[in-house]
Simulated scan of single mutants.
Amino acid sequence: MPLARLDIAKLRNLTKIQFEPSHQVNVIVGENGSGKTSVLEAIHLLSYGRSFRSHKHKTYIQHDQAECIVFAQLKASTSVFPIGLKRARDGAIDVRVQGEKVHSIVELAERLPVQLINPDAFRLLEGSPKIRRQFVDWGAFHFDVQFMPAWRDWQKALKQRNSLLKRGKISPNLLAAFDQELIRLGGTVNEVRQAYVKHLIPYFKTVLNALSDELDVSLNFTQGWDAQKTLAEALESGVNRDIELGYTHSGPQRADLRVKTKAGDALDTLSRGQQKLVVSALKIAQGQVLTDMGRPLVFLVDDLPAELDANHRQKLCRLLESLNSQIFITSVGSDSLDFVWSDATDVRHFAMRNGELQRVAGDLNE
């Protein structure tokens, strides 16, 4: 559901802004530090319950305020669907859906799927396997309803097993008694991840080819243990090592998404510019999977001109436009001239100055 209205209060330098974005494309222009990225941060916060700029909530709440507030009205057919989030300086989160308090941020994520493309998104290739697992898990969460409850309970079972291992002396037989749920739930997590990546791959290849017909990149999901063994067999064969290490070394917690070319890992064999195209293709492919499932999402594209040349910016815009999803894209100004949209697309331009957002009349591309 697209955002029909967005209210942000007491977040960074955004003391209070209210605006009605286009259900298609929104271009926010402003100097560095003006607050344009904070608008995207607020939308991200409303979906994930956390910022993409900092893990510390106190950094985005205005320093002299006790809380920040983000409220939105989502457009659902002919009606509106209000959601809101309040984050207090002491860390407390108050989440509201249609005016009712809910106890899980998951309910926001389900109603407002958000995909982010920004300079930090390129850590998808150069960062740790955890970042790539999060990428896969975001897609699996929206792809199959059984994923989230299985993932949540598997995490609990894994923590319990690791807690037992940290105690030191524990017999393999006693440990095995705790493993049945870990094996069952871990198996479900792995199966959904595998199914999702298999579904994603053809989308990724199509999108990457549209961005660059010179790149040949493959995706390969590794489950986190010997592919020739079941999870039960992997845990059994590694139990003595687990006891020695004090943690579980095999399982879905060690899964990874390998991004490769014929010459090796994409990180080692592709130029920086080519890596940016691959990551953009991964993000857009995830969006395409969701929209084909009838789940339009919101794309947040921050500081795109700094990451791609004009030709590839235009290609990326055309791909984003084809997703029939809502887009928020920031620019420092003149580079927005490289954004090319069709005449039928509702494009709204906004100018951000010192935390104040104003709609700009006319089309800056003209």
Rank of each mutant, 00 (worst) to 15 (best):
L277V: 13
P296V: 00
S334F: 02
V301M: 04
L308S: 00
V289M: 03
D292R: 08
L245R: 08
G333L: 09
W341Y: 12
R258M: 14
V332E: 07
D302F: 09
P305C: 10
R254L: 11
R318H: 04
I327Y: 05
L300H: 13
E307D: 03
A266L: 11
L320T: 05
L267P: 01
R258E: 14
F328S: 00
H249I: 09
R295Q: 13
A285C: 15
Q253M: 14
L323P: 12
R258F: 10
L297Y: 00
V279E: 03
D242G: 12
Q253E: 07
P252L: 09
G246P: 04
L270M: 02
S250D: 09
K283N: 08
S342R: 15
L300T: 12
H249V: 07
D303C: 03
L316P: 02
V340W: 06
Q286S: 12
R318Q: 08
I284K: 13
I327E: 02
G251T: 11
K260E: 15
A263V: 05
R272E: 03
S271P: 02
N324R: 06
Q286W: 06
D256E: 03
K315S: 08
S250V: 12
H312I: 00
P305I: 13
G251L: 12
S250F: 14
L323H: 05
L316M: 11
D265T: 09
D302Q: 02
S280T: 06
A344S: 14
W341V: 06
D303T: 13
K315A: 12
D242L: 11
T248D: 14
D265F: 02
L319G: 04
